[in-house]
Write a protein that binds this DNA or RNA. Structure first.
Lengths: 339, 339
DNA sequence: CTGAAAGCGCTTACAG
DNA sequence: CTGAAAGCGCTTACAG
């Protein structure tokens, strides 16, 4: 039905082998033949059938799979930008598919589809595979890698140093004079990122001899969400004895929740109200008023590094490498010196 | 290298034909054989080779292509959510690829890849193909469709009624008592959405006998951007004779720019300052302070309808159908009655 | 420089 | 219920 190289071959009076060579610019052929083939292909409206080409010539390590998820705000877009850029430079294809974040059935379905499509690596963008999925991939000789996230599993990852993010953020607040610093948004018990950031947070406090009260920990939904920030403010205001004077919000969204919570309470942010620093460095930071200070992750570089690593890993699918990408501290208006 | 149905066939002592039938649940086979084949498949770690399956059995109308682009803020995520949901219900696959928004070379490259992958339709999510691309698709018997966007091209589209968006937004402002209403963010000359919204805007004004001054039109970068809103405020404040009292911002981002511009000028939004209504109904609206009134598009429904239409169009690739999805008006805090 | 032939892994009438 | 065989469209040694 659709036009094939056979049609082109017939049109120009060459074999399909020659047509194939010419179309792919491989092997030897005369310029004259090439010209006629190209013309015929254009004329007939020929397009390669990828399935056939892939089947005939199983390109090893040609396409990389990316599993993303849809969220309200998604820092993953920046990671994807990096992935696509690096992939283009390295001439590898990228197949992006969506899964539901913590739904293993959904993840399993997508992973299966990835395997069927012969990807040589799959990058999990903030979606957490379970061990079974990871094992399945390795068995299929596919390199699994977490990106912008890390878990307890035996799997490679490219992300920021979450302990340091927690440490540096808290340290900044301490240096600005705050002492009663809350930790809001992530769940130190349930997720490894939260655990590391919390560890950094407590270590920084310890260096200043402050012992966090348990009321300083506000988890909310544990999803690094805007809503957790909002809820935290209400909670703090209802328990004035908690008397926190600053918060380390585990995401910019959460930080925005804090600032908005203050606003909604009728005492909008001001130096002296409640300092706050978030994490990510998303566009939210400069679009909020006041603008949010943030531990800014290099998402683009994380994405780029992820594909570089995947390509590099080759078929060493069992290799486990945890790479940490540098972040920066962007101070804006929500971390003034304590007055 | 990887395990094939041949391996399974050998393992259980059946032909590949039988294995294929069993694995696909097609045709007749004994329960006993099925059991053994399933077991062997699991045991050996078998995964179908999609390329081979697709080649052997070219599933007509099985996968739909979606061309997306990466932007700072992206309402497309909601559209994609709708697309994926509808596609799952209809049992069609979705292949999502990214192009650079107004870069025809990039779009052409992606479209070519889509054709090679035998999609039966391609949905352009706010990316604008040119006529050549559209023609190419049709020639390849692929149904082209714009989604959440519309152009002058002869191509089907699923989007909101932009004239009405412009009309109703402006009308709301008029009903609230505003008369000197600016139009900010889109370029009525250069893009069809902007044109329709602007037409709606002027029609609404006309109904109230107001003639828009040309200073009321502030285009900025013409990209419906946050920055255009910010710049508009500066512009208006530098030309006090313009004296606009409200703005119809052609996106929520632009509306946020207006509100933030006011803040940055030291006279934060308040009833009496400058009313503003945006378009989209994105999460920005409820996360901004004040919360933004917005012409809320049904992006999920737009996405769903797009796949329904594509499936429905079948191979009528030349069919042109422009579908308009209802929107709603969400009034929040930025459109108080004029005082 | 070009062609005949085999093969990629799977599917599907067609026989039996 | 099962198998032999052909075929999907392309690629690639291998000859010539």
């Amino acid at each position: 039905m659709s036009v094939t190289i056979k049609d082109i071959a017939a049109a120009v009076g060459l074999s399909t082998a020659s047509v194939s060579r010419i179309l792919n610019g491989r092997g030897r052929y005369s310029a004259a033949s090439a010209k006629r083939v190209q013309a015929a292909a254009a004329e007939l409206g020929y397009f390669k059938n990828r399935s056939a080409a892939d089947l005939a010539s199983p390109q090893q390590r040609r396409t990389i799979g990316v599993i993303n998820y849809l969220a309200a705000t998604n820092a993953n877009d920046q990671v994807i930008q990096g992935i696509l850029a690096e992939a283009r430079e390295r001439d590898v294809e990228v197949t992006i598919m969506y899964a539901q974040r913590d739904n293993q059935a959904s993840i399993t379905r997508v992973v299966k589809s990835m395997i069927e499509r012969q990807v040589f690596a799959v990058l999990f963008l903030s979606v957490r595979p379970d061990q079974t999925v990871v094992d399945t991939l390795r068995q299929a000789r596919i390199y699994p890698q977490e990106v912008a996230s890390a878990s307890d599993l035996n799997i490679s990852s490219v992300s920021s140093d979450d302990f340091q993010i927690g440490y540096q953020a808290t340290d900044l607040l301490l240096r600005r004079g705050y002492r009663r610093i809350a930790f809001v948004g992530a769940d130190p018990q349930k997720d490894i990122i939260g655990r590391y950031r919390y560890a950094g947070y407590t270590a920084a406090l310890q260096a200043y001899d402050v012992t966090p009260a348990k009321e300083w920990l506000f988890i909310g939904d544990g999803q690094y969400s805007y809503h957790s920030g909002l809820a935290a403010v209400t909670d703090f205001s209802e328990h004035p004895q908690t008397a926190v004077d600053a918060v380390f919000a585990t995401s910019d969204d959460t930080a925005l929740g804090i600032v908005n919570g203050l606003y909604d309470l009728g005492r909008p942010f001001s130096p002296g109200s409640l300092a706050v620093i978030g994490v990510d460095g998303s566009s939210t930071c400069t679009r909020a008023r006041p603008q949010l200070s943030s531990m800014t992750q290099s998402f683009d570089l994380i994405g780029r590094t992820a594909v570089a690593e995947a390509v590099h890993a080759g078929d060493q699918v069992d290799q486990i490498k945890r790479i940490e990408i540098p972040f920066t501290i962007e101070e804006r208006q929500t971390t003034p010196t304590k007055k």
